[in-house]
Design a protein around this nucleic acid. Structure first.
Lengths: 243, 243
DNA sequence: GCGAAATCTTTACACTGTCAATATTGCGCC
DNA sequence: GGCGCAATATTGACAGTGTAAAGATTTCGC
């Protein structure tokens, strides 16, 4: 798929010790080696290390560069090590997406908590949504690229459900009504679909660079965030018929 | 990447003659073969045949199955033949996406033409948008999966620009004002971004199965199209603050 | 009709996911 | 303590992929 510029595949050089300070100092020697800094056969916390490596690879090289072998290289283990922890590529990608959803939800919760004025309370959530996507484009792209994910995995399913529930609650709060879990009116459904579609659509178009044309034609210096706010708050109703 | 169940790679059996009736009958024999139905060395219209094959593969096997070699097999030529016409995979995918944008635009134009009542004129375009995506999920997914496309290709650039221009004009018509090509007010930009984000977001969420939860909770029998219409026409303004 | 250019095939290489077989280690249990 | 089993990680292999280079075949301009 790619070109080259790959190191050595079976590279097993002494891993840089302590990227996350997780008991990485002075492990027992590996094989018959005499050096004490050799990497041990058993990693100890490889699963987490692989997920962190995967996130680094993803944000550095993009979705296409996120391969099992690249992640293994990044983590300094053999190419087949990830399989044992995630089954296959879909497994690893799905677990990474679950982490993304949790980060994502946490970002929105803390943005809501920080909001004070009424306007802030209205805009905190969508702004945090877009901000997360801009700060972690690789992760966001992964989370909404369904074809590579396995939603039957509990961790992913739960995390993305939580994301949806948070949205529905926010809409409920805006409409000053309780949104029950198991039944919706058409109006309620439309409100949720509108909010979600608008923010999600805006985000994907923005990340894909498709809003550049619009932003360039706006008054000089207008940011994406300002456009988002205008889009969400403007009450000018069009005079209808189109085409 | 995949498992197996692949035929023979170098398979070069007599192509089934005349899938699209394009001068496929009784060509000169190939190599020292005596049979008259042998495939000729030169295909004649391989470029178009490859694009059609690619669309079939895409809708049949999904985005992950759209590989250069699979397309070559589908078209009955050697695995390296597509390279000569498209340079690389990105090239083929980009040309296919350009075709998608043209189909897409044509669908919206004809939907607009068919609209008579005011309500129809308002909803024709978004409905056609979603309908195209549902009818050609593979193509739609391809068109908006930027990482695999090369927008510097004139055909793709033009076709997607036309799509944007059509949208901007429709919004202009709704606001009863001319939208000039080179400058926009924040209100105009917001209106365009809102319409595009809403419809594009709705479509991707729908195709990714993420609206299923909502649809299931709506009054029994509610379709995605009805939800779309409600989302676009409902004038119930939320009482604001959220979170 | 002939040489050059276009078209298509063949061959080769580096990369990928995934499986099976092996090596190494940790842990419970006697 | 030591012993065996299960977990963990590596090695090796195989089929599939994109893409480049070299060869074969045909078309086309002159």
């Amino acid at each position: 798929m790619a070109k080259s510029e790959i190191k050595s595949e079976t590279a097993h050089s002494p891993r840089d010790p302590g990227t996350t300070s997780s008991s990485a100092s002075a492990r027992p020697a590996r094989r018959a080696a005499s050096a004490k800094t050799e990497t041990p056969y058993h990693h100890g916390a490889l699963r987490e290390a692989l997920l962190q490596a995967a996130e680094r690879v993803l944000e550095r090289e993009g979705l296409a560069g996120l391969t099992l072998r690249a992640v293994a290289r990044e983590a300094g283990v053999s190419h087949a090590a990830p399989t044992h922890h995630f089954g296959d590529l879909t497994g690893l990608v799905s677990e990474l997406a679950a982490i993304g959803f949790r980060q994502f939800n946490a970002a929105m919760v803390s943005a809501c908590d920080a909001a004070t004025t009424p306007l802030e309370r209205t805009l905190a959530r969508p702004k945090a949504y877009v901000a997360y996507a801009q700060a972690h484009p690789g992760m966001y792209g992964l989370m909404f690229r369904t074809e590579r994910l396995d939603y039957s995995r509990p961790s992913l399913h739960e995390a993305s459900e939580a994301s949806f529930a948070g949205l529905a609650n926010a809409i409920g709060a805006m409409r000053q009504e309780q949104i029950s879990g198991d039944a919706l009116t058409l109006d309620q459904g439309a409100a949720i679909a509108r909010a979600w579609s608008m923010v999600h659509g805006f985000t994907t178009l923005l990340l894909d660079g498709r809003l550049k044309d619009i932003l360039e034609r706006l008054p000089k210096g207008t940011t994406a965030e300002q456009l988002l706010q205008a889009m969400l708050t403007s009450t000018v109703v069009p005079k209808l018929p189109g085409c």
